[in-house]
């Protein structure tokens, strides 16, 4: 049952991800964005299979619920028809494709070769996972957490500055 679910979610994730970046039928950025949303959701499914419920929820909440909406927003604000008229540069695509396939091959063979986690088994989660995460977050990882808050402040200030209207 879980194996089947893994294959389903994994296949969906990869399919959607591929359609997001290289959809042969549509070059509409909205379509890409929607496929990215679907990728995120399937990924959340994989997270659930890994018993990382908290992260699955956060993944959907933040990525699918906020980040991607922002993307959609921006795509809609900008003119997307332009994109559909552009012609691809086949040479660039070939180079890019080959290099990425190369990297993929390296990754794949490395993963294969290194037999990572051969002896490891998925252990059942004891108690509330979220509580443990929260505890670690506010003790051991308190400092990064605070740094992140500064980062968010920076992002906020930055976004406001970049999108204020009053400049020529």
């Amino acid at each position: 049952m879980e194996d089947a679910l893994f294959y389903i979610f994994a296949a969906l994730t990869l399919l959607f991800a591929f359609l997001c970046v290289a959809n042969p039928f549509s070059r509409n950025p909205v379509t890409s964005a929607m496929f990215l949303v679907l990728t995120m959701i399937s990924l959340a499914g994989l997270f659930v299979l890994l018993q990382a419920f908290f992260l699955a929820a956060v993944q959907i909440l933040v990525y699918a619920g906020a980040v991607m909406v922002l993307f959609l927003f921006v795509i809609m604000l900008l003119d997307v028809k332009e994109e559909e008229r552009r012609r691809f540069n086949p040479f660039g695509i070939a180079i890019g494709g080959v290099s990425v396939i190369g990297l993929g091959f390296i990754l794949f063979s490395t993963i294969r070769e290194s037999k990572v986690g051969a002896g490891l088994k998925l252990t059942a989660v004891k108690g509330s996972d979220t509580a443990a995460l929260g505890k670690a977050l506010f003790t051991e990882y308190l400092l990064p957490f605070e740094v992140i808050s500064v980062l968010l402040l920076v992002a906020m200030v930055g976004v406001i500055l970049l999108s204020k209207k009053d400049l020529k």
Partner: peptide, 10 residues
């Protein structure tokens, strides 16, 4: 990671 990102995003 967080330090690098704080610098970069800024």
């Amino acid at each position: 990671f967080v330090a690098i990102e704080l610098i970069t995003v800024t």
